[in-house]
């Protein structure tokens, strides 16, 4: 379980998150919603162990997440703009992640790519941006981590692409019990598959 308690974060003198507390249940899809600037991306990065909160704690399976390799191995993070070297193909990127995550399943990544018509042998830069994001989601799911924390990669997608993403997430939940925490500007884009919704209010 991912638990947040009184998480506060400032950027210079701007308060991005003020005393946020939440528990994200295992084996479920949780959505973090809120208006633009409410701190969704910041919260995703805090949960993913990228950003350290100024105050409050984030624990994953009763262990702190920040700079903790044990918990980071259970977590795959997809920030708003996932990084991948532009000349590398999805297959090469999968090889890289396979060295990082012992649980990474290269075969599963290839199966997902085939199922959703995503190319694995062309450089990522040649892929259409939203297809690239879908590919990154497939890689994230293939990492086999217990948790997958994901920024809003979906709102700007086409309906067809978003539908594929939704199906990929639901299948992963059903097949492997992956826990998803997803930031969404608008929960309606994911419809009924979301189990829990947490709304952030902009604090200024």
């Amino acid at each position: 379980m991912i638990e947040l308690s009184n998480v506060t974060k400032h950027f210079d003198n701007i308060c991005a998150l003020n005393r946020v507390s939440a528990s994200f249940k295992e084996g479920a899809i949780s959505a973090i919603t809120g208006t633009s600037g409410s701190g969704k991306s910041t919260l995703v990065r805090i949960i993913g162990g990228i950003v350290r909160p100024d105050a409050g704690v984030v624990v994953v399976d009763d262990m702190p997440i920040f700079d903790n390799v044990v918990t980071l191995k259970r977590m795959f993070v997809l920030p708003e703009k996932p990084y991948c070297p532009s000349y590398e193909s999805a297959a090469e990127l999968a090889d890289f992640y396979a060295h990082m995550y012992e649980t990474f399943d290269v075969e599963r990544m290839h199966e997902l790519a085939i199922a959703y018509s995503l190319p694995t042998d062309v450089p990522m830069r040649r892929m259409e941006p939203y297809a690239r994001n879908l590919m990154m989601l497939a890689i994230g799911i293939s990492a086999g981590t217990k948790y997958l924390v994901c920024d809003d990669l979906f709102t700007a997608m086409s309906d067809e692409m978003r539908s594929s993403a939704r199906k990929m997430i639901v299948d992963a939940l059903d097949s492997f019990g992956t826990t998803f925490v997803i930031a969404l500007a608008d929960t309606s884009v994911f419809g009924e598959v979301i189990d829990y919704t947490y709304e952030l209010e902009a604090f200024r």
Binding site: R45, G48, G49, I50, D67, N68, V69, L72, K73, M75, F76, V77, P79, K81, P82, Y83, M100, Y101
Partner: peptide, 16 residues
């Protein structure tokens, strides 16, 4: 100095 790359390296299961 790159937000994308910092997020990427900091999210990997490797200590600082």
């Amino acid at each position: 100095h790159s937000e994308k790359r910092t997020d990427f390296y900091h999210s990997l299961p490797v200590s600082a």
